[in-house]
């Protein structure tokens, strides 16, 4: 292949039809309150990890729903499991459990980091 000094770029668009949402299905099955998120960002505002890393639980919630799992994988390990997000959530989402379940789902479904 010729080297042109440039090459095509992977699209940024979330391709909903191509993405895999088995991680989301696993969370929804075990933590139905996840459906109630309205993206207010209260969780992310109070997050200990968000202060020093690019972790945002608000964003993780959205990415999980779209099946953008690679980005979730990168971000979720920053969580220190302090539980403040669950304390502030106005919709009563058990956010701490969402994090547990996400980690579990990656391990179970992806055979990831076993």
């Amino acid at each position: 292949m010729k080297n042109f000094g440039f090459s095509s770029i992977k699209p940024r668009v979330i391709d909903y039809d191509k993405n895999n949402r088995t991680v989301l299905d696993y969370i929804m099955e075990h933590e139905p309150s996840f459906a109630l998120c309205i993206g207010c960002g209260g969780c992310a505002a109070t997050c200990s990890a968000a202060r020093f890393t690019d972790m945002s639980l608000r964003k993780i919630n959205i990415l999980l729903k779209r099946g953008e799992n690679d980005e979730v994988r990168r971000l979720i390990n920053k969580c220190m499991l302090c539980g403040k997000c669950t304390l502030v959530c106005p919709r009563g989402v058990n956010t701490r459990n969402v994090i547990f379940l996400t980690q579990q789902a990656f391990k179970k479904l992806d055979n990831y980091a076993v």
Partner: peptide, 14 residues
């Protein structure tokens, strides 16, 4: 700039 052209090309590719 040559290094940027992948961006242009990706649009056509789409």
């Amino acid at each position: 700039i040559q290094a940027d052209r992948g961006y242009s090309m990706s649009n056509s590719k789409k």
